[in-house]
């Protein structure tokens, strides 16, 4: 029960993190392309707050970020296996997302890709492996002893 709760919690925070990123980017482009009032960009501050909090809750506190970004020498054999699997899936997902965005911009004639999309893709490239681990890993606490 505790294990399931832990997995669900991870998934909720990961979903909130990516949702806040998507909403933030969409809002930026709504103002830029659809000429929504500039005051709408003030909502970005709230979205940024949610994004930062969910980033810490989803990746930093459960140590998924550290697991992915640490040297392999600091991981045990199961963790190495988990990280390799996560990187494998992340590579495929990231390639598909990149292609969709690049083709989407090319078709919609909004080239070149600007710093917001580039920054979001950079964040996605770094966070996807950690989110795949967070989505699947049972983050069992020590009280389970």
């Amino acid at each position: 029960m505790k294990k399931q709760k832990s997995i669900n919690q991870n998934r909720v925070w990961i979903s909130i993190n990516y949702l806040s990123l998507i909403i933030g980017v969409l809002l930026f482009y709504a103002v830029k392309i659809l000429h929504w009032p500039l005051s709408y960009l003030l909502f970005e501050i709230g979205i940024l707050g949610v994004f930062i909090v969910s980033f810490f809750k989803a990746f930093i506190i459960p140590k998924f970020w550290k697991t992915v970004h640490t040297s392999l020498e600091n991981l045990d054999e199961r963790e190495v296996q988990v990280v390799f699997n996560a990187l494998r899936y992340a590579y495929s997902i990231f390639a598909i997302i990149c292609l969709v965005i690049i083709y989407g911009f090319a078709i919609a004639k909004y080239q070149p890709i600007d710093v917001v999309i580039a920054g979001s893709l950079l964040y996605l490239a770094h966070s996807l492996p950690a989110s795949i681990i967070g989505w699947n890993e049972k983050n069992i606490s020590m009280e389970d002893d």
Binding site: D76, R78, K138, I140, M142
Partner: peptide, 19 residues
């Protein structure tokens, strides 16, 4: 022995002991 103690002795993360 706790999971943490066993994990330290065999050189793995305590979560790996759970798995």
């Amino acid at each position: 022995v706790s999971r943490k103690e066993l994990a330290e002795k065999i050189g793995v993360n305590f979560q790996t002991v759970g798995y």
